[in-house]
Design a binder for these strands. Structure first.
Lengths: 336, 336
DNA sequence: ATGAAAGCGCTAACAG
DNA sequence: CTGTTAGCGCTTTCAT
């Protein structure tokens, strides 16, 4: 086993083994058409024999493509954690990119330091593209990305940049509308809402869906804002109960916040769903763990993720990349 | 704004602007000692002026270091999702590595295809090191990693390779012991356990902690095995109840499984904690969302993550990298 | 269809 | 302390 110290084979070794020139090996490796069948088979055999793997650095140096794309997470840590979107996206992205021999570099831009690092990375040309996750409207990073001239797509719309940054997303507005209509159908008369931060699509679009159904019945006092955390949902519910003690339903913009709302309702002695119906959003793991289990809106996460990556790849190939919005499903459980 | 088409500056441009040679610029950039102060300041100014950022590919080509490390996730998708460990580790790792101008590449090795991709990646020399997350004993990937000769560390011990692969981990055995002792102190007499898969440290070590306290009272029929999912926890609890209907406490090796156990107990008409006390492990988000909230064991995740990365960096620098085990905390809530 | 050769931007060894 | 120079492994003209 003296192969420990053996250097990794280069394209030169392959060329020698195959009895052709380095140029020809390169052509085979890159799928160029003008290669004879005999040369191609010889090269392929030589590659297998030598165990050759291309040196990416060398390739990058001449092609000035890095073969990697950055996934930028703009989420404060706590939420990231809970976001089902994220892990699905990650899995789908690594898999799809791997098929193209590209890799996924992860960066977290939750604070200024993080943003600066991402900006430097992008300016340094270290990635061929960027995949934005849960980027808020007006995030300063957006400018940096544009300045760096790196192709970018988003998973979930970036509010205010919908026409600039292609995105794939679940139909937040439609999902919220479906949930609200369902609550109305159940005979609920006084329906409140706990929203997410309004600079995220899940914050503002779900609210839009809600108000579009209820019209002027969705008065200002019926709406409180949360921060997507469980504690935030609990606090928001308490505020809502204080202002509108007689409400009989609440639509909460995320399951995690809904879990918090459930706790607040319980503490206030309200029964769910008898006194107050609770509707969530996401259909995340926690939805089936609460008591009662949450009636919620399921997003087609895997599909959204796939579409997002597809868009980025299209962009890299300079093809069209039009936004994609995918339908949601209402999942009825015990809470409404 | 005609700077759109301007090429990125190279070390050559910087050298010219600073009035020194490329060699000197390189020396400054790499912190070599033998550079005059005047040369250094000139170079630094030139770097700032030109907006120079090093071309990693070129650097890699000559140093044969890639500046990136792979984080390998060997977890089937469902769990990944729920694993609090993971997101903390990711954040800590990206941050710490960024300080060293290194980046984190993510790969998922949940199935054969994924493993093969990781192996190829490593064999290709695309990463300077590997950070293993929740790798199971006997994972075929382990051999590949050794063959590729890539320095690797694990977050959580890799069973059977404790002496080969440095790791940082929470004290699973100690945490389990603490929880078991607590249940005993509460006067519980008939304590069951739902374990995780025994080829993971969380599976076997927590079980060891449990049996080390209970001795022969931890009979075979008191122990059932789960798979870290909520549904698995529920099923395991049902099995346990069928075999040992009179048990008055159960220690569940993860909060998610404990949430499932809670459902099974509820369905069986058992009150928690009056009839049956339930202890979890992890102190993940779900622990405070269940009803009653879970009494559980908190792991110092951030610290574990930091130590893991520190170990990897030590390994890259060819320094000592001894395993680190960090203490856990018992968190008492409503379920026990 | 293929070989030869010119770099891509950088580091490191060498000479001074 | 600093400039010069030889590649690192690959792609891509340019000839042939």
């Amino acid at each position: 086993m003296s192969n420990l110290a053996r250097k990794r084979p280069t394209i030169h070794d392959v060329a020698e083994a195959a009895g052709v020139s380095r140029g020809t090996v390169s052509r085979v490796l890159n799928g160029k058409s003008n290669v004879s069948l005999s040369a191609e088979t010889a090269v392929r055999r030589a590659v297998a024999e030598t165990g050759y793997v291309v040196n990416r650095a060398a390739r990058s140096l001449v092609t000035s493509r890095t073969g990697s794309i950055v996934m930028v997470l703009s989420e404060p840590q706590e939420r990231l954690f809970e976001d089902p979107n994220f892990s699905v996206l990650m899995r789908v992205a690594t898999n799809q990119l791997a098929d193209l021999d590209m890799s996924l570099v992860l960066m977290i831009a939750g604070d200024d330091g993080g943003r600066e690092r991402v900006a430097r990375y992008l300016r340094g040309g270290h990635a061929d593209g960027a995949l934005l996750v849960s980027t808020h409207a007006g995030d300063p990073l957006l400018e940096e990305i544009e300045r760096a001239g790196v192709p970018a797509v988003a998973c979930g719309a970036v509010l205010g940049r919908e026409s600039v940054i292609p995105y794939a997303a679940a139909d937040d507005r439609g999902g919220a509308r479906a949930m609200t209509e369902y609550l109305v159908q159940q005979g609920r008369k006084k329906i409140g809402m706990i929203t997410g931060p309004l600079d995220t699509p899940g914050g503002s679009l779900r609210l839009e869906g809600f108000t579009s159904v209820l019209g002027r019945k969705a008065g200002k006092q019926m709406i409180v804002h949360g921060d997507y955390t469980q504690a935030g949902g609990e606090a928001a519910m308490e505020r809502l109960l204080a202002t509108v003690p007689d409400l009989d339903a609440v639509f909460v913009a995320s399951d995690l916040m809904a879990a918090g709302a459930l706790q607040a309702l319980h503490a206030a002695g309200r029964r769910v769903p008898e006194d107050v119906a609770v509707g969530g959003f996401d259909d995340s793991a926690i939805a089936s763990a609460t008591r009662p289990a949450l009636t919620t809106v399921r997003q087609p996460l895997a599909q959204v993720a796939e579409e997002t990556v597809r868009l980025l790849i299209a962009l890299l190939d300079e093809r069209e990349a039009d936004p994609v919005v995918l339908p949601t499903d209402l999942v009825v459980r015990g809470s409404a």
